[in-house]
Simulated assay, not measured.
Amino acid sequence: MYKDYLEQAKVIIFDLDGTLYEGTDHFKLHVENLKAKLDQEKKQAFQDIYDQILSGNHPVQIGKIYDGLRDIVWGWNPFTEALTEACNWEHERVHVDGAPSHIAAHEFDFKNWVPIGDGWWPPYAIARHFGLSIDAIQESYNRTKEQMAQLGGYLNQTPGLKEYLSELKNDKHLIVCTNSDGDDAKRLLQFLEIEENFDELIPAAMKPVNTKKHFNYVLQKYDVEPNQTVSVGDNFMNEVAPALQLGMKAVWLTDAAEKPVDDDQFVLTDTLAQSF
């Protein structure tokens, strides 16, 4: 079904990291780098929580908000931007006096309000839960990115994607909008051998805070209606929810079994590599 969305669109906006290449082992690598910063007795507890998250048996899940100030997890409605129930790490519902009823995407500060949009963020939340500083977590993230470039098996071309993008670009505008900086994004697109398929690269995008700003820019520049435009990405907060808010369609690359919200404007798929 996701192919119908792409083939009917006039403009397709792709995320880069986690979208235009395959694999999730880098998340596990990040987990190991974070665990290395913990005392021995906390390493297994970290792993146990991460395994619970992967199996869907923990409140920290894609589409939720980590409250770093209170060390709890909130549900969040991407359309109304309302905070719903709050849970502690034992999956118990908690009441929080003085908490806001809503939080907009531009209010995410990645310190007190952290959107859990893709596989990078559950390890972040667990690390904060165990007392690691934001700087220490960022250090682990940077090391993981370096290892991905240096070690084999972490950046894999999606079979058939290069050819499929080449077909799509014949009658569509293809755009990359990424939080990676320009130099890194260009290097990665060149490594994947797909850079020539895109009309435009929007780097250092500061998603999800500025996602709608970038999407509105694309709608205006290419003179298309929202329902003629598709956002493709692995981060629900960054690429899917903002697109739906603007009336666009979206393809969410995820291994999640269910949608956080019931909406027929977006579809789930675990990979773009399906019968090209």
Rank of each mutant, 00 (worst) to 15 (best):
L151D: 14
H129C: 05
D71K: 10
C87L: 13
I103A: 08
E193N: 05
G75S: 14
P203R: 06
V114P: 02
V94L: 07
L151P: 05
Y164G: 07
C177G: 05
P78Q: 06
I202M: 01
P159L: 01
Q138R: 13
D184C: 07
N77D: 15
W120K: 03
S101H: 14
L174K: 04
L151A: 14
L188E: 07
T158R: 08
L174C: 04
A104K: 13
D183G: 09
D97S: 15
G75T: 13
Q138H: 11
D97T: 14
D109I: 05
D199K: 09
P100T: 02
A136Y: 04
H129M: 07
Y141P: 05
D199C: 09
G119M: 02
K212V: 11
L201P: 04
P208C: 03
Y141A: 12
K111V: 15
W89Y: 14
N156G: 06
I126N: 03
A204R: 07
A149D: 15
L188V: 02
R187L: 13
A149S: 08
K111H: 11
G153Y: 01
R187K: 12
S140K: 08
H106K: 14
F110H: 06
A136M: 10
D97E: 14
G117L: 01
E92I: 10
T211A: 14
W113T: 01
L168Q: 03
G160R: 01
F130P: 10
D118V: 02
F130C: 10
E195Y: 10
V114N: 01
A82R: 12
H91W: 13
W74F: 05
G131M: 05
G182V: 10
I116L: 02
P78D: 01
A149I: 11
N112Y: 08
A185Q: 04
L151E: 12
R70V: 05
T144I: 00
I116S: 00
D171G: 08
A136T: 14
H91D: 13
L188P: 00
P123G: 03
E167M: 10
N197K: 09
E81Q: 11
A204G: 14
P159C: 04
T144N: 06
D135R: 02
W76K: 01
I126Q: 00
F215R: 02
I126E: 01
V176K: 06
S180K: 10
E195S: 11
S166H: 13
G119R: 01
E146M: 08
N77W: 00
A104L: 13
Q190V: 12
W89E: 12
T211R: 07
H173D: 09
P159D: 05
